[in-house]
Design a protein around this nucleic acid. Sequence first.
DNA 1: ATTACATTTCGCCAGATAACGAAATGAGAA
DNA 2: TTCTCATTTCGTTATCTGGCGAAATGTAAT
Lengths: 121, 121
Amino acid sequence: MRAATNIYKALSDANRLRILMMLRNKPLCVCEIVEILELANSTVSKHLSILRNASLVMDSKSGRWVNYRISTPGESPDIEIVLAHLDKILDRDEQVASDNKKVREVDRYVICASPTLTVTE
Amino acid sequence: MRAATNIYKALSDANRLRILMMLRNKPLCVCEIVEILELANSTVSKHLSILRNASLVMDSKSGRWVNYRISTPGESPDIEIVLAHLDKILDRDEQVASDNKKVREVDRYVICASPTLTVTE
DNA sequence: ATTACATTTCGCCAGATAACGAAATGAGAA
DNA sequence: TTCTCATTTCGTTATCTGGCGAAATGTAAT
């Protein structure tokens, strides 16, 4: 029962749904999500830990960055049905469309200043 | 987006999940749900209004009683996918099993004292 | 070693939520 | 009408949640 409510609690915040839908495009690091949601990084980090705790997303380190991605069906028994529902319910959501556009445009090498990984310089 | 979070907020409370699973057996009146959840009727009424607000359940009057039931797919575009997920995630939940047992045993004519409808007397 | 910086953790505050009992509502019984 | 009683609404309280900034953490650059 706790596991069930945990998942729905994780899904019951608009910013967390935005994060999930953003991650459907591609993995993102925290600073990219911060840029798009326009929230404090401590707030975004908290949201991500809630999503991770519900096994909806996974994280992996890459230099100083932490990349977040949607869990695979093997990692989360719920992810497929949850994403299917989100796709259906947020099909024509303007906020999601706008976020997706920004995800495509955002460039972590511009937003964040990690020198080591600034391949473009 | 609001509609989406509303549904997940409705699902993010253990007592509301218990109510939904109980209603999968058959429609129930408020006093029957109160009996099984062991909460104040004002609390149960509030939970039911949240579920109704999310279009997950519907109510109809019957004498002094108000019967609640799971919405049909026509009434809620989300109900089928939600129930499928709940069935999966709460498959072996002991609380749900215990509640289902009580739902089968509970008798509104014993719990509530509505004289008009006390057919058994 | 020291600095730089992405991320997380901590402490705090404002608003939301779940619980209760009491009062209000509404429909049938007397 | 007046009473009864299932249900809802109201008012209150304790707890949870989401937000922020500051401090802590960890890793890479200098």
